[in-house]
Design a protein around this nucleic acid. Sequence first.
DNA 1: TCAAGACATGTCAAACTCTACATGCAACTT
DNA 2: AAGTTGCATGTAGAGTTTGACATGTCTTGA
Lengths: 213, 213
Amino acid sequence: MSLRNAVLGLLAERPMSGYDLTRHFDESVAGAWSASHSQIYPELARLQEEGLIRKTADGPRGRKVYSLTEEGLAEVRQWLVATEPDRNSRSEAYMRVFFLWLVEPTDAYEYLRRQAEFHEANLAHLEAQAADLDEEDSGEAPLWAPARWSRITVEAGIRHERTLLEWALWAMEEVRHEVARGRRGAVRGAATVEPPHLAPPEVRVRRPRRNRA
Amino acid sequence: MSLRNAVLGLLAERPMSGYDLTRHFDESVAGAWSASHSQIYPELARLQEEGLIRKTADGPRGRKVYSLTEEGLAEVRQWLVATEPDRNSRSEAYMRVFFLWLVEPTDAYEYLRRQAEFHEANLAHLEAQAADLDEEDSGEAPLWAPARWSRITVEAGIRHERTLLEWALWAMEEVRHEVARGRRGAVRGAATVEPPHLAPPEVRVRRPRRNRA
DNA sequence: TCAAGACATGTCAAACTCTACATGCAACTT
DNA sequence: AAGTTGCATGTAGAGTTTGACATGTCTTGA
């Protein structure tokens, strides 16, 4: 039920088309949720059917702009205040770290390097957003407006990305030290010192060894 | 394809039953991935079918313990080094923050308080894990073993939880100040000062006003 | 003027995930 | 001896998500 509410929530800020929403899911709310257009268009149809949104404008190339209705606003508020969030978060990138001991140190290092790069880029992007918001906000800040909350939300993103960037850099150092210690000047290509727990070899049906005293 | 690889990765560390895996997804790797037993058992059957795992022991109550095969290890390594991670992460809890401007400040505050509580609990849990690992590790640390990587992985979790806990506490303060400034001693129950963008009222089919000069 | 690229909407099938249903054993407590 | 809880495996159906297919418009630059 989250996509539905995400769409309603985004439309509360301003009327948008399915295309706009798709881009929002790739940009502003990426990192929190994602959805492709093939999911969004049917959802918009359902929401309109239910009277939670309404088409309020048409644009070039068949563009359809939807706005939230009173019922839609009530719905999204109800969701926010009356339901418990699903606090399970999912991140394949993080899960992979659990398994990095299975690969060559150089591969693990490379993985961490890319993670660092990724978080660095995200951080830069969010900091730019924050700078924009801080500038906009120069006059009397609106009291309880989306812009104020955007800043608070972006702050979460910034802190999150910064933390994971720092962690990745720290982990890279750990791997470097580990490799230096382990190799001790020698050139060793071994992947894992302590091998994973494998199943014993399959029982052979016939044994080539003849039973010869 | 992530559940499949998650299962293989976990079995690389030690042989486990479907039940064990289910608990792992609720505990150690929760926060990175989740899966219920109804997903895990069919997956184990498929993996065995493909020869990536093998049943190596039976236990009480029909317990079946699976181990990784050589092919399974090759598969999970291949996945780790040769495929790009899906870096989209998903968190309903974070997404909700984007929409908190839609609800009463007291409700937003309450939401943040619960988030803080949640992250605090996770942090405590991970710090206990870290302490255990640090103790275990007291002697000569194994060079490239799962335990060493567990510590690195747990470190990511700790930093992540700490960051989000601190953010939630900071955001709570922001809301408190905002409310104090906005209410300025008066008792006001208004939800949003700047209303969301709603669709204009539906066009009525007949107009009660007669067209009278 | 023509081609490429961004804008824009939609459908469908396959894969994945969740909830509920279903069953039974083993250990511990009363 | 009976009841409760935790261990343990499985299936079915509904809902969610992805990736591929499909189509057409508008703008910009060569």
